[in-house]
């Protein structure tokens, strides 16, 4: 279960362009880890992009610093794991709401979506870095 079969790391300034680049990194990892069922690939990719978008949209850089997005993607035989870090951010222990908003609201569905797609979600706070650790058990282990 803990044997790492594929891993990719990405770090860049937290800008919207980083989201497209990260998506390309996810596409690359599935080329290597093609044994992962399509549904799991789809669910994991969606949750990672949601979480990284949250960093870009809501992260606030420390004064005079640069906010960076750091992501490590790890494929194990029965688990997919992502560590999504908000680096150089003003510490914010608050969590967004995980409940779905009204139908006509245009935002606020991100965390609900991540929760629906992941098996476990943990948040680590260390100084100016907040890291979301997302894990999904693969439905049909290799």
């Amino acid at each position: 279960m803990t044997e790492v079969l594929a891993q990719r790391a990405y770090q860049a300034p937290a800008s919207p362009e980083a989201i497209d680049e990260l998506h390309t990194e996810l596409d690359r990892i599935w080329e290597v880890a093609s044994f992962v069922p399509e549904l799991d690939q789809m669910a994991f990719t969606t949750a990672v992009i949601e979480s990284a978008s949250n960093v870009v949209q809501h992260g606030v850089a420390v004064p005079g610093g640069e906010l960076r997005l750091g992501v490590t993607l790890t494929v194990m035989s029965s688990v997919l794991q992502a560590r999504i870090s908000e680096i150089g951010a003003v510490p914010s222990p608050e969590m967004p709401s995980a409940s779905l908003p009204d139908d006509d609201e245009e935002s606020g569905r991100g965390l609900a979506l991540i929760e629906a797609l992941m098996t476990t979600i943990t948040v680590e706070l260390r100084g100016e870095t907040k890291t979301w650790v997302l894990s999904r058990e693969i439905e049909t282990p290799a």
Binding site: T45, T46, E50, S53, D104, E106, S107, R109, G110, L113
Partner: peptide, 16 residues
Amino acid sequence: DFIDSSGLGALIGCLK
């Protein structure tokens, strides 16, 4: 081939 909650928000905005 992909949508996230930002895209979904835009769809709802366009619908409105």
